[in-house]
């Protein structure tokens, strides 16, 4: 799974511009599925036929990033955030544009918390003209892709949020030979901007049960973050996040399956936390049962997100068992 994840991390794409990631996934899974297509939103929908219930697994292909809005006389690049961006976390990060132009995010106002209108990207251009020869308004920038191994099984990198889920589903697709259930694997577009992709994908598939596979906020060692999950403690099964109650029936089955197969898991009941694609999947399907399983991720939405690959392995095990055993 690590080699797939590395490839995914190196493919860049912000919400609405997921083509590079999508193409990579398509290439990886095409030999292993009965059908795969891209819809109007840019969702990649793969199908493994079965006669049982329709199960949909979703992971998102997009990551947060920056759109170029304006190029200053001095060659500074102004940007607007795509997705939930904390400019403090990204200040002085190295970034790269969709065309490979490198730069650094600079905060203009010393000592203040940087905001969208007080940062710019320095690409080293001496003039507006030079900058415009490399960057156009509407181009996107993302943090320079990286994946660094830390101690234990931990890795640091950008865009694990989304791509870990994709890596897990790719791996699951490769490992499932035959299936009783009718399986749909959806690699969704635009999750970071209100899960617009998941909504229409669920509308076209109309699953009986949908399970979103993603990352979730993990506590870091400083206990500054209000994360809900713990790194290294296994796959996190969401029960309740700030605005969402996950279908109790699904939660119960996920717990039961995990227990029976000794899959290491933790449960998430939290005042904070977002529902990712789960709510959109449920609404898009005009009402289906929905669950969410996640790989705990510290420093989420920064250029150095941290995950424990063991948790990803446990999540993969759970996905495989759900696909195999889930009955409604």
């Amino acid at each position: 799974m690590i080699s797939v994840l590395k490839k995914l991390v190196n493919a860049t794409g912000i919400s609405g511009r997921e083509a590079q990631v999508r193409d990579l996934i398509k290439e990886e899974i095409a030999p292993y599925v009965d059908g795969v297509e891209t819809d109007a939103m840019g969702n990649l929908i793969a199908h493994k036929k079965g006669n049982g219930k329709k199960l949909l697994f979703a992971a998102h292909t997009d990551s947060i990033g920056f759109f170029v809005t304006f190029i200053e006389k001095n060659g500074a690049i102004r940007v607007s955030p795509v997705g939930d961006i904390d400019f403090l976390a990204f200040s002085y990060s190295e970034v790269v544009s969709e065309n490979g132009v490198k730069g650094v995010i600079i905060s203009e106002k010393d000592g203040e918390i940087p905001k969208a209108d007080s940062v710019y990207i320095d690409i080293g251009a001496k003039s507006e003209k030079q900058a415009k020869s490399k960057v156009r308004v509407g181009d996107f920038f993302v943090p320079v892709p990286k994946m660094t191994k830390l101690l234990s099984n931990e890795y640091a990198g950008h865009s694990f949020d989304g791509k870990v889920g994709c890596a897990i589903l790719i791996e699951a697709i490769k490992q499932i030979k035959e299936t009783k259930n009718d399986l749909y694997f959806v690699f969704t577009a635009q999750q970071e901007v209100y899960s617009r992709g998941a909504r229409v994908a669920a509308y076209s598939v109309r699953p009986d049960v949908a399970v979103a596979v993603d990352t979730t906020d993990a506590k870091d060692k400083s206990s500054v973050s209000d994360g809900n999950a713990v790194l290294g403690e296994g796959v996190s099964i969401k029960i309740k996040t700030s605005r969402m109650i996950y279908s109790p029936e699904v939660v119960e089955k996920l717990r039961e399956i995990s227990t029976r197969h000794s899959i290491k898991y933790q449960c998430e009941v939290a005042n904070s936390g977002t529902e990712g694609d789960a709510k959109a999947l449920q609404n898009g399907a005009m009402g289906c049962l929905v669950g969410a399983i996640s790989v705990p991720c510290a420093n989420i939405h920064t250029s150095s997100e941290i995950i424990d690959m063991k948790d990803a392995e446990e999540t993969l095990k759970l996905v495989l068992k759900i696909a195999e055993e889930y009955e409604i």
């Binding site: 605005r243 969402m244 109650i245 709510k279 449920q282 609404n283 005009m286 009402g287």
Partner: peptide, 16 residues
């Protein structure tokens, strides 16, 4: 169900 948490119960039953 679930008026207090997203109102999805009524939304889906009305759809049905």
């Amino acid at each position: 169900a679930q008026e207090e948490t997203g109102r999805c119960g009524a939304s889906f039953v009305a759809t049905d």
